[in-house]
Amino acid sequence: MSANTAVAEKYRNNFLKEIEEQVEMGDWVKMCMQCGVCSGSCPTNFQSAWDHPPQELFMMIRAGKREEVLTSSSMWNCTSCYNCIVRCPRKIPITHIMHGLAEYAHRIGMAPKMQATRFFSGLFWKNATHTGRVNELKLSLGLYFKDGFVQGVKNGMAMQSVALGLVKAGRLNVLELFGGHKCKDQKGIHAMLAKAYEIERVRKAAKMAG
């Protein structure tokens, strides 16, 4: 049984409950009063990018639209601007729920496969945790090459002027490709993170069982 079918079984008709137990801050979703302030505040919404602004996602969760919510690219578009959070009259931690939804969809393998931000998010995390610090060059190259080598070169060319500007200004170091910044205690970091993952996994599974 895949991760997804396992939870789907467990929460068959109660998607809201699933979100409450499995998603960071998910227990706030029921408190939304559908005022729409978040949607009206969300920058990516008014650049007409979103399928479902937060208000709508929350309503979909309450209406049990599991498939549509978890496969949506909407939460991946959140820029973490925190506009919604500070304006929500119900003080709902919308940004965190957005991240939480994305993380959950990713965790159970339902997130859209080549969603750029999803890809970048993973890349960033790997990049950061590998050495303990971010390597910006590898990070951007990784992103450009996500759709394969040819597309990568194209993307790279498109961004060439940007990169060159940074190099000239001393803010992008080509030598970073071979090594670069890192933490000394990488082993400790890796062990610590492995432990954290394990604890979290156990806790979420316990919720599902209980």
């Binding site: 809201l16 029921k30 408190m31 009063m33 559908q34 309503m59 309450r62 209406a63 119900r90």
Partner: peptide, 14 residues
Amino acid sequence: FYRSAQEKGVIFTK
């Protein structure tokens, strides 16, 4: 009172 109902899990659908 409304908020309390939400906390108790009453679903509100517009």
